[in-house]
């Protein structure tokens, strides 16, 4: 059961108590990664939080979608569908809002970025050029998920885009700055993972005791700033045991 809300928002069923909003550009038929779609997602999320505080249990925003989990004992999907349609009709008519700019320190080196050489070789660039290109871009926080505090940032310069490892590593260290295709991220905790590691960030991406818990939120802009080894340790960074 599909409901077209306007030219760029489509509503689908997800589950018994959840609906899915899909967003697209006027120009493009399918959902893709663009800052304008992402800002449309954010705009819609704010409207939903504002208008449906009693009916909605939680929301998951991503690149071009919002999962709306609602309380079945308060509203049914017909009512919610109709109300979402009227609330979100105006969505897309306002301009793009600029998110906060967050600078994340990055210790790029061969000892902290075990895949730097591989990316450089693949891209036919020097390691220094890879590092420069990764810092040159201002990234957007498109989504948070997969693990607590894992922020999907995009998009890296096409030249340093790199496919995931064929066999994921069992242990990616906490703080690893990594690339997968044109996405980049900082691993908030040690975990398995298949992204290409290019450096380490000494800042906690998820700290249950801190306020706020995360340094970034969806819609923020992120810039990586290179630091040296001394600064990395001063900021509380820890070098992990090496695993290739």
């Amino acid at each position: 059961m599909t409901t077209q809300i306007n030219d760029c928002i489509r509503l689908e069923i997800a589950g018994e108590s959840s609906l899915m909003l899909y967003f697209s550009d006027y120009e493009r038929a399918s959902s893709v990664i663009t800052p304008s779609i992402s800002s449309l997602v954010q705009q819609a999320e704010q409207l939903i939080r504002l208008h449906f505080s009693a009916e909605i249990i939680d929301l998951i925003s991503s690149y071009a979608s919002i999962l709306v989990v609602f309380d079945l004992s308060v509203i049914d999907h017909h009512q919610l569908r109709n109300q979402l349609r009227s609330v979100l009709k105006q969505c897309g008519s306002v301009g793009m809002k600029q998110g906060r700019l967050v600078e994340l320190p990055a210790y790029y080196s061969l000892e902290s970025g075990m895949d730097l050489t591989r990316i450089a070789h693949h891209a036919n660039l020097t390691v220094e050029q890879v590092i420069t290109l990764h810092q040159a871009q201002e990234y957007r926080v498109y989504a948070i998920g997969f693990a607590p505090g894992f922020a999907y940032l995009g998009e890296v310069d096409e030249r340093i885009a790199m496919a995931r490892l064929t066999t994921p590593r069992l242990k990616v260290p906490k703080g690893a700055i990594a690339i997968a295709d044109r996405q980049t991220a900082v691993y908030p905790a040690q975990s398995p993972g298949g992204w290409n590691i290019i450096g380490l960030c000494p800042i906690d991406m998820f700290n249950p005791q801190a306020e706020p818990t995360m340094p970034v939120e969806v819609g923020d802009r992120v810039k990586f700033v290179a630091i040296d080894k001394t600064q990395f340790f001063e900021l509380g960074g820890v070098l992990p045991c090496v695993e290739s």
Partner: peptide, 10 residues
Amino acid sequence: ILSEGICYGA
């Protein structure tokens, strides 16, 4: 697909 939210029971 482009990564998106997963509901209970998906």
